[in-house]
Amino acid sequence: MRAYLNLEGVGIEFPTSNGPFRALSSVDLNIERGEFVSIIGHSGCGKSTVLNIVAGLLDATEGVVLLEDREVNSPGPDRAVVFQNHSLLPWLTVYENVRLAVDKVFGATKSKSERNEWTQHNLRLVQMDHALDKRPGEISGGMKQRVGIARALAMEPKVLLMDEPFGALDALTRAHLQDALMGIHAALGNTVIMITHDVDEAVLLSDRIVMMTNGPSATIGEILEVGLDRPRDRLRLADDHEYNRLRSSVLRFLYERQRTPGERVA
């Protein structure tokens, strides 16, 4: 019996002027339905590449991605992506940005008023229903990312793919959005893959943390199970023994076993 989402021997090469560059090799990962998995690693290790292959935005050179036993080879709304820089269309309002996705995914199955209701529902979910008619240029970075999440959720994806969704936000806003995401995940039970470079974020949100080795030819170095009870409270976890143990084992992996390329040279 295969898992909900399978990556089997996935690798990718990019053509460059100096010949092919091997970014990833033999990535194997099984993700269960409803699981929250984060992928962590130093920048340039190819963690976004893994996400883009699952999204179908990049084609793997070898190996296969299976979602519910079906091969993934092109992008689609069943694997909605929350992009790092939100990627809202600046000429559409908050509502229209989400509605575009809703119309595209449910145009055939939902009536106009149902689609309107569904759009509003998802914006309520991320607490952005107060700014329906604002354009992305008129709202803060955190708000944009909320709308980006609402747009992805509105597609009712089988897997929600998040590419460093909170990387560009300040610490306070990031904490708010992490809490909102935990609430949504608890309520809806989405299957999530999240790319991050923030150790605390990974431990707080994930069921499992996938730690990547450095590129070139990056692969999965270690997978850490996070057995902390949910719902999780960041304040209470700060003094939690298990939380700190997990946190330091991720840190050890990143800074002892996988130093950044710059440090290795020096």
């Binding site: 909605a80 990627s87 575009l100 995914v105």
Partner: peptide, 9 residues
């Protein structure tokens, strides 16, 4: 933007 378009098919 084009990736958004691709995801939305």
């Amino acid at each position: 933007y084009l990736n958004v378009a691709r995801v939305l098919k």
